[in-house]
């Protein structure tokens, strides 16, 4: 089988170059694809986060990607979701009127409360709530780059691996088996962000 090791899912929302550049920087090659077949064959999958959650879900459905993603996550294929990518893993989102999402993680995605500057934009600290190889070499309370107007509320708090304070506590890292998701953008978070990709891919590719 000719497996492309790392794929980045392209659902037509624009800038994927940063994610690909980050993967290259940490020593791997990523293939950008909108073909579910490529995703099915991959060893590690990255779902980047650009644009609105509703549009993202529509695009994933149209590409025939939603069920593939559900199945692969269920089977434990290493999967890294970023920003809106994290949000669509949940049951439903409030963005642009309530939309059904992938439902891989029970919970909802809500708009940040008014009174705060929205979007939550800039560098904020991630408190690591569990010990995990994803965080190898990353100090607790390290800063990562956020830009989002909606946030996820998991039903089962045991999937939360990192939290961030923005007036309210935000679930900023989710880990469940081989699924990793961050509300911030590792590809825009300097050395610490690159380390997360590096750790994830190290874990993913050593499992073969």
């Amino acid at each position: 089988m000719n497996k492309e090791a790392v794929v980045v899912i392209d659902y037509g929302a624009g800038n994927l170059r940063s994610v690909v550049n980050a993967i290259t920087k940490v020593g791997y090659q990523a293939k950008v694809t909108s073909n579910p077949r490529d995703v099915f064959d991959a060893i590690a999958i990255i779902l980047p986060g650009v644009g609105a959650a509703g549009d993202t879900m529509d695009s994933l459905e149209k590409l025939g990607m939603s069920n593939v993603i559900r199945q692969l996550i269920y089977e434990g294929r290493p999967f890294f979701a970023v920003c809106v990518g994290l949000q669509v893993l949940f049951s439903r989102t409030e963005e642009g009127g309530w939309h059904e999402c992938l439902g891989v993680i029970p919970g909802i995605v809500k708009r940040l409360p008014s009174g705060l500057k929205i979007p939550h934009m800039g560098w904020n600290q991630v408190k690591q709530t569990i010990t995990h190889p994803l965080f190898d070499g990353v100090p607790d309370e390290a800063n990562f780059y956020f830009v989002h107007s909606y946030y996820a509320e998991p039903e089962d708090m045991s999937v939360v691996a990192g939290t961030t304070d923005y007036g309210i506590p935000i679930c900023s890292v989710v880990i469940k088996d081989n699924l990793v998701a961050t509300q911030f953008h590792p590809e825009k978070s300097g050395d610490q962000g690159l380390k997360l990709y590096s750790n994830f891919l190290k874990m993913a590719l050593s499992e073969r």
Binding site: R17, S18, N21, A22, T24, K25, Y145, V147, E187, K188, S189, G190, D191, G193, L194
Partner: peptide, 11 residues
């Protein structure tokens, strides 16, 4: 921008 984004991992 293409060249910068290969080397610079901030917004």
């Amino acid at each position: 921008v293409e060249c910068v984004s290969e080397r610079v991992f901030i917004p």
